[in-house]
Design a protein around this nucleic acid. Structure first.
Lengths: 153, 153
DNA sequence: ACAATATGATCAGTATGCTGATCATCAGTA
DNA sequence: TACTGATGATCAGCATACTGATCATATTGT
C-alpha cells in the first residue's frame, strides 16, 4: 500500500469528490443550485419541523460551526425560516417555507438518480453489498469525527 | 432510500469526514501538521521529482486551482522547492527538500496505521472486498469530477 | 438564591474543492 | 513569420469543514 492511489483514505476523497460533482450536475439540469449538504438539511428539517441547529447537525453529522452558514444560505434562498425558540432563547428553530417544500419534492427523484449514478461503476449485484459495507465502515469510525452522527432517541 | 442517512452520497461524505479526522489525529500524535492532501502530494513528488503542477494534480486527482495553494503551504513549510521549469517557462517544477523527504518517511507507518483504522469497523474478511469495491466504484465515476485521475502513461 | 456547569450559537482563522475568468507561454499551421 | 489554439498557472468568489474561542442563556447542585 505504498501508492496513495490504493489507500482507502485517498479513494474515499476521490469518491466523495465525484459524488458531489454528480449531485451538482443532476441538480443543475433541473435548474436548481443546491449542494448535497443543503439538500440533506432540508430533508431532515421537513421530517422534524421546528428542530434547532445543534440537533439538526447531530442528525446528519455536520459540524456545529458549519451548520450556521448552511442555514444562512438556505434562509437567503427562501427555503427556510429561522426563528428564536419560544422555550429556549439560545436556540434557533428551523422550518421549511412553501418554496422549500416544493423544491425538496421536485428534487427527490433527481437525488435518487444521482445516488444510482454514484454506484454505476459496480455490477448490479455488487451495489447492495458495497452500500452495506460503506454503512458499516462509516458507523465504525463515526466517533472519530468532530461531527459524529447522533441518532434520534 | 428516502432517508439521507442511507444514501451513498451522504455516507461517503461522512466517511470522508471521519477519514480526514483519523489522519489528522494520527499525524498530530507524531507532532506533525500535515493534511491528507499535502501528504499525497509529497508522496507523488518523491516518486517523480521535477513534476509540474498540472501533471501532479492529474496523478492524484486534484483540482488544478487547488494544487497551487497546497504547494504554497508545502513550500512555506520547507517541504518543497518550486522553480520555473528550464524547458517550459509556464511550468513550475517541484522537488522535495531534505526535510520533505525525512518527514515523508517518518510519517509512512503512521499513514498506514490510519488507513487500517479507517477500515476498523469492518471484519477482517470484509476489508479487502470493501477496498476492491471502493476502487471499482471510484474508477466508474472518475470522469464526473472536474479533477479526474490521469494515470501516468 | 447563587455559583458552577452545560448548552446553543457565533466568530476568526485555516484548508480543501469548486466555477469561471485571465494571463503568459508554447506548439502547430497557414 | 504570424496567427490560432492549447496549456500551465493564477485569481476572485463561493461552499464545506475543521480548530479554538467567546457570548448568551439554561440547568443543576448546594
Amino acid at each position: 500500500m505504498t501508492d496513495v492511489n490504493t489507500m482507502p483514505g485517498h479513494l474515499i476523497r476521490r469518491y466523495h469528490q465525484a459524488s458531489v460533482a454528480i449531485f451538482h450536475a443532476r441538480v443543475a439540469e433541473l435548474g436548481y443550485d443546491l449542494t448535497p449538504v443543503q439538500y440533506a438539511a432540508l430533508a431532515k428539517i421537513e421530517a422534524q419541523p421546528g428542530i434547532d441547529q445543534v440537533t439538526l447537525a447531530g442528525l446528519i453529522a455536520y459540524d456545529r460551526t458549519t451548520i450556521g452558514g448552511v442555514v444562512d444560505r438556505l434562509v437567503q434562498k427562501n427555503f427556510l425560516v429561522r426563528e428564536v425558540s419560544a422555550t429556549d432563547r439560545r436556540a434557533r428553530v428551523l422550518k421549511l417555507t412553501e418554496l422549500g417544500e416544493t423544491t425538496l419534492h421536485q428534487l427527490a427523484p433527481t437525488v435518487e438518480a444521482a445516488q444510482q449514478q454514484m454506484l454505476s461503476g459496480l455490477e448490479p449485484g455488487e451495489q447492495a453489498e458495497f452500500v452495506r459495507l460503506l454503512q458499516k465502515a462509516t458507523a465504525g469510525v463515526n466517533q472519530m469525527s468532530r461531527a459524529p452522527l447522533k441518532e434520534a432517541e
